[in-house]
Design a protein around this nucleic acid. Structure first.
Length: 310
DNA sequence: CGGGTTTGACCGGCGC
DNA sequence: GCGCCGGTCAAACCCG
C-alpha cells in the first residue's frame, strides 16, 4: 500500500485549480498563478527540505490544464460553473469537525439537494467497514443519484513531482479504489480516497506521459482531520501541507477553460502581471476559514510564520 | 480476520 | 442516439 520511504524527489512543481469554480481568467493567468504561487510558497516549501523547481515545465502545465479543461468540459462543467463547495469546512482541516456548506451555481447559499458529500460528512459517521467504502461514498452513488443531480466537485490541487514512486507519502492514509488507463498516456491513473471515514478527500495519481519521471498528483477536497503521521522526521511533507491543509477561500487559482489558455503558459510570464484571482467565497465558507489571513497562504495554518523566509 | 488492492463492470456526461 | 471516456463500484483477492 503506502509504499515508500520518504519521497525525495529531485524537485516538485505545483499547480492549483479551483475546479469548482472555473471562473474565467485571462490567458496569462495560469502561468501567473503558478509564478505567483511559486514565488510565495517556494521558500516555505524549502523549509521542508523540498527542492522546488522553477515552474517552467510548460508542457506539463499545459497538459495539466488540458486535463482540467477536459474535466470541466466533460460532465462536470455544471458543477464547476458554480462557486465553491466544501465538504470539510474546518479551515485548515486541523481538528475540525467535518462540516461545510456549498452554494449552487447561481451563487446563492442555498444547499442543493444534490450535495450529499457535505451533508453526509457533517452529520453522520458511517460505521461501515473500510472495505465497504461503497456503502457510503462521498458522493451520491451513481445508482442512487437522481437524474439531473450533478456531482459536486471539491476544490482541486495538483502537484507535479519528480519521483520514482507514484504514490508519495503525504502524511495521510489512502485507500486505492480504482485504476484506469488514461487516454493518450501509457501510464494508468490511480484513484485514492482518504481512509478516514469522515474525510472525503480524494486524490488521483498519474505519471506524465511526456516525462515519466514526473508524477502528477491531484488532490480533491480538504482533509478534516489530522494527518496520521509526518514523514521526513516529523515534518509534514509538502504534499500534506497542500493536500490537507489548503483552505478554500484562500489563494486558490482559477484556470480558464478557454482555448487561449495555452498561450499563457510560458516561463517568461512575469508575476508583474495580473495576480491570480483569489477565491473569496465567504458566503459559503464556515466560520474558521475567515479567520485565516489570506496572506498565510496554503501553508499558513501549519507553518509557523517564524519558519518562513518571507 | 481486518484492511487494503486489483480489476472488470457499470454509470453519467459530452461530443459527434 | 450512440460511442467514448473519466470516474466509481464492488466482488474477489491478497497480505500481515
Amino acid at each position: 500500500m503506502e509504499d515508500k520511504e520518504g519521497p525525495d524527489p529531485a524537485g516538485t512543481e505545483f499547480k492549483s485549480d479551483s475546479s469548482s469554480s472555473w471562473t474565467l481568467a485571462g490567458p496569462d493567468s495560469v502561468s501567473d498563478s503558478i509564478n505567483y504561487f511559486f514565488d510565495r510558497e517556494s521558500s516555505i516549501l524549502s523549509e521542508f527540505g523540498w527542492n522546488i523547481l522553477q515552474p517552467d515545465h510548460a508542457d506539463e502545465i499545459e497538459r495539466f490544464c488540458e486535463l482540467n479543461r477536459t474535466d470541466a468540459s466533460r460532465g462536470l462543467a455544471g458543477n464547476f460553473s458554480g462557486s465553491q463547495s466544501q465538504s470539510c469546512g474546518a479551515a485548515g482541516g486541523v481538528g475540525g469537525s467535518c462540516s461545510g456548506a456549498a452554494s449552487n451555481p447561481d451563487g446563492s447559499a442555498e444547499l442543493p439537494t444534490s450535495n450529499p458529500s457535505v451533508s453526509s460528512s457533517s452529520s453522520e459517521d458511517p460505521p461501515e467497514k473500510s472495505t465497504g467504502f461503497g456503502g457510503k461514498p462521498p458522493e451520491i452513488p451513481s445508482k442512487v443519484r437522481k437524474k439531473g443531480q450533478k456531482r459536486i466537485r471539491q476544490p482541486r490541487f495538483a502537484f507535479m513531482t519528480k519521483s520514482e514512486v507514484d504514490h508519495l507519502e503525504d502524511g495521510y492514509r489512502w485507500r486505492k479504489y480504482g485504476q484506469k488507463a488514461v487516454k493518450n498516456s501509457p501510464f494508468p491513473r490511480s484513484y485514492y480516497r482518504c481512509t478516514n471515514s469522515k474525510c472525503i478527500v480524494k486524490k488521483r495519481v498519474e505519471r506524465s506521459s511526456e516525462d515519466p519521471t514526473i508524477v502528477i498528483t491531484t488532490y480533491e477536497g480538504q482533509h478534516c482531520h489530522h494527518s496520521v503521521g509526518f514523514p521526513r522526521g516529523g515534518l509534514i511533507s509538502h504534499e500534506a501541507a497542500f493536500a490537507g491543509q489548503f483552505t478554500p477561500g484562500v489563494s486558490q487559482f482559477y484556470y480558464s477553460q478557454g482555448a487561449q489558455l495555452h498561450r499563457g503558459i510560458s516561463p517568461s510570464t512575469t508575476q508583474s502581471q495580473q495576480l491570480p484571482i483569489e477565491v473569496r467565497e465567504s458566503r459559503a465558507l464556515p466560520e474558521p476559514t475567515s479567520q485565516l489571513p489570506k496572506d498565510e497562504g496554503l501553508l499558513g495554518d501549519i507553518v509557523p510564520p517564524g519558519m518562513r523566509k518571507t
